[in-house]
Nucleic acid binder design. Sequence first.
DNA 1: GATTTATAGTTTCACCTGTAACCATTTGCA
DNA 2: TGCAAATGGTTACAGGTGAAACTATAAATC
Lengths: 149, 149
Amino acid sequence: MTSDAVPAHAPLELENFLPYRLSILSNTVSQSIAEEYTGRFELSMTEWRVMAVLARFADLSAREVAERTRMDKVAVSRALARLVEAGRVDRSIHDGDKRRSVLKLSEAGWAIHDEVAPLAREHERELLARLDVAEREQLNRILDKLLAP
Amino acid sequence: MTSDAVPAHAPLELENFLPYRLSILSNTVSQSIAEEYTGRFELSMTEWRVMAVLARFADLSAREVAERTRMDKVAVSRALARLVEAGRVDRSIHDGDKRRSVLKLSEAGWAIHDEVAPLAREHERELLARLDVAEREQLNRILDKLLAP
DNA sequence: GATTTATAGTTTCACCTGTAACCATTTGCA
DNA sequence: TGCAAATGGTTACAGGTGAAACTATAAATC
């Protein structure tokens, strides 16, 4: 039996490494939702996120959309260009500040939103169905803590 | 006061929508770890993931790396090309199956691993420091359930 | 044993992404 | 007022990414 002179390496156990587990879970969930709307509506995930924010908060500027979605402002700018082009978002210019845009869902945008939102909620429901009531509360509390600034 | 003839839209409350919260958390965490090694070691996130898997399980094939990292096989192929080129991974050919490659970290690869791994663990520690012991156990149990196939 | 089918891995293509540079407008301040 | 600094948003560039096609090898079937 050889003595262990050289200290052993200490590889991460990825399967127990929290950042890794979060990444796998998040990608799996987001992608399974995205699969449902990308095909049906020619809607990218970033576009959907922008629409979801505008559904909840009207008359935001592009910068505010970026803040709320935590997306890059360039990504938002491009998503908005496509959404406006497709007639899903109405863009006007802010009174008194010609740099700011004022954004809201169009009728067509709302129509899509009203189909996609329940679908997204259904996925969330399926995911949460794996947990009991106590666990759901725990998860919410834990996420609140981990997401706090 | 106008009567509400048209049914109201029901926008998602993104800030309480589980898939969205998971996505924000996962991106924030992964990126803050990545910031530490991308600059210092010219190492992309996908490359690091490949290295982490090869640290834990030697002599995998590219396909097995893809399975374990849950990355696309094309992404793995390219990450491996860069890692082999940089001398961080040794690639040989499987005895008895000339299609398979046999991958392992090189000395240089291990040296980098041994610097990055503690750094990643430290980030995990900082994140978990926001939770008490009970919450950490709860989180683990919950993630086990949500990640089960 | 020859031929079809499956598998490992790479390349191509079309697109998405972030960083940095940029333009227009507004704000701060001397 | 005039001018520097800050801000909202877009564009250019340099990668990174997945789907599909492709090459090489192995396994299955006849």
